[in-house]
Structure formats: structure tokens, C-alpha cells
């Protein structure tokens, strides 16, 4: 238990202990060895014989202290503690399988796509299969993005993700209904599961757009989008889409 607590305190500022470990050479080695060092992968931990916490996300961030404020999304945002969120698609095609999948894994799954599909800003973006089916690769991208968020804001990146999803989830949509050969657009509500789906998809799309033909990496684009959406910034792509969707729905009530 004490080791776990020590790890959690480290998790808030992961860049510090690396610098601190190099400086104190005069102190006894055994006393500082355990809390100072940390491993980011299972393999590195085994090599250097260090304890690797399986309850922290990527070995750094705790998911226990993350809170969901919106009661609508609270049932569908899964925050079970896991080091590497991957279920290998075991529950796929079952009813309500999303209630068993970690929220960070769902973000990873949405990022594993070949492009934007439709035209956005006059052009179709294609990654030429660079991310399709490559879950470990995308997992590293998300890990880099979370590190960037932690550097920028100093908060737990999982909390930033949850706040961003709460702000970017739309509440109203339109659908087409036909009466006697004429189509009408009618406003409808959105269920909790679909609200989360739309928000996650917009986050993934915006990071693909931000990194396309640009110096920015995909991880940096994702980090920027999450921080903007968490602060309710109207320049965020996901917030823009949400406002547009709700504006159309409001006029079609």
C-alpha cells in the first residue's frame, strides 16, 4: 500500500524524479532507489528490477481520483484501473459492450482509422492505412499526448479527457421524416451512449485534421484538442461541431 501511494504522488509530476535521480549521488543508494525510479513499461521494469504499478494508467496516472460531473455520461465513462487499456476486442458485437471498455481504449479505437471519410475543408484526408489495425502504435501516440497535457496543464490527463468529453457531447440532433412525399427535418434528443460516441469521434477527427500536412505530430494535435475542449474554448473542433449541430436542431424544433 505504501509503495502505491508513493507512486501516485509521483504520477502528478512524472518529469521531476528523472532529474532528481541523477543529482543526489552522496545519499545512500538503497534508501532512495525505490521511490525515485519509475518504469513506464512492463519490459523496462523487469529489466531494471523495479516495481511496476498495474493500477496506474501507463504506469503514471491514477484513474481512481478522476471524477465525472455529468450524471448523464457517468454510466458510460468506464474508469476501471488498468495500466494498458486493451481488451483485444473480446466483447465486440455484444449488447452494451461499451459499458465494459475503458474510456481510454475507446479513444484509441476511434483513432485507428484510415482518414476522415468525407470531405472536410475541401479535401479528403487519408492516412493510407498508417493507423488501421495498429493498436500498440496508437497507444504510444495517446501516451505521448497525455504526457504533453500533463506538461501543459499540470493536471491528471485522464481528468482533462473526461472534462473535454463532457463539454463536447451534443444534446440535440436532427433527423429526416417523410410525410406524403415531402421530407421534413425534425429535432430529436440523443441518448447517453450516442452522445459519448459523437464526442469521441470528433476528438479523433480533429487530431487527424490537425496533423495532416503539418509539422505537428498526431500526439500534439490530440493534446491541443483535449486541452481546448476541456476549457470550453470555441476554437476547438469538437465544440464547434457540437454548437453547429445544436443550432440546426434548435431551428427545426
Amino acid at each position: 500500500m505504501q509503495e502505491e501511494k508513493a507512486n501516485e504522488t509521483e504520477a502528478k509530476q512524472p518529469e521531476q524524479p528523472v532529474a532528481a535521480a541523477a543529482v543526489p549521488a552522496a545519499e545512500p543508494k538503497e534508501a532512495i532507489a525505490k521511490p525515485e525510479k519509475k518504469a513506464t513499461t512492463r519490459r523496462a521494469a523487469k529489466k531494471e528490477n523495479i516495481a511496476f504499478s498495474e493500477s496506474l494508467l501507463f504506469g503514471k496516472y491514477s484513474l481512481k481520483e478522476v471524477t465525472v460531473n455529468d450524471p448523464s455520461l457517468a454510466n458510460y465513462i468506464v474508469l476501471a484501473p488498468k495500466a494498458f487499456p486493451n481488451t483485444y476486442g473480446r466483447r465486440k458485437n455484444r449488447v452494451y459492450y461499451v459499458t465494459h471498455v475503458n474510456i481510454i481504449e475507446r479513444l484509441i479505437n476511434k483513432l485507428m482509422r484510415g482518414g476522415t471519410g468525407a470531405k472536410i475543408g475541401g479535401k479528403v484526408i487519408r492516412t493510407k492505412g498508417a493507423l488501421q489495425g495498429k493498436k500498440i502504435k496508437v497507444m504510444h501516440i495517446v501516451e505521448d499526448a497525455f504526457e504533453a497535457i500533463n506538461k501543459k496543464t499540470g493536471k491528471n490527463p485522464a481528468q482533462v479527457l473526461v472534462n473535454a468529453l463532457e463539454n463536447a457531447a451534443p444534446i440535440e440532433d436532427t433527423t429526416r421524416i417523410r410525410y406524403g412525399g415531402i421530407n421534413y427535418n425534425v429535432a430529436v434528443g440523443i441518448s447517453a451512449a450516442r452522445r459519448l460516441d459523437v464526442a469521441l469521434r470528433n476528438m479523433a477527427l480533429s487530431s487527424l485534421i490537425g496533423a495532416f500536412k503539418n509539422k505537428k505530430t498526431l500526439a500534439d494535435a490530440l493534446a491541443d484538442e483535449l486541452v481546448l475542449a476541456a476549457n470550453k474554448d470555441p476554437t476547438s473542433y469538437a465544440i464547434k461541431k457540437k454548437v453547429e449541430l445544436e443550432r440546426i436542431a434548435r431551428s427545426a424544433r
Binding site: 440523443i190 451512449a193 450516442r194
Partner: peptide, 11 residues
């Protein structure tokens, strides 16, 4: 409403 829903969900 659009999307999947069950009894007890909040919208």
C-alpha cells in the same frame, strides 16, 4: 431520441 438507450439512462 436517436441512439441506443435502456431504462435508467440519463439524457
Amino acid at each position: 431520441i436517436s441512439g441506443k438507450a435502456k431504462v435508467g439512462d440519463m439524457i
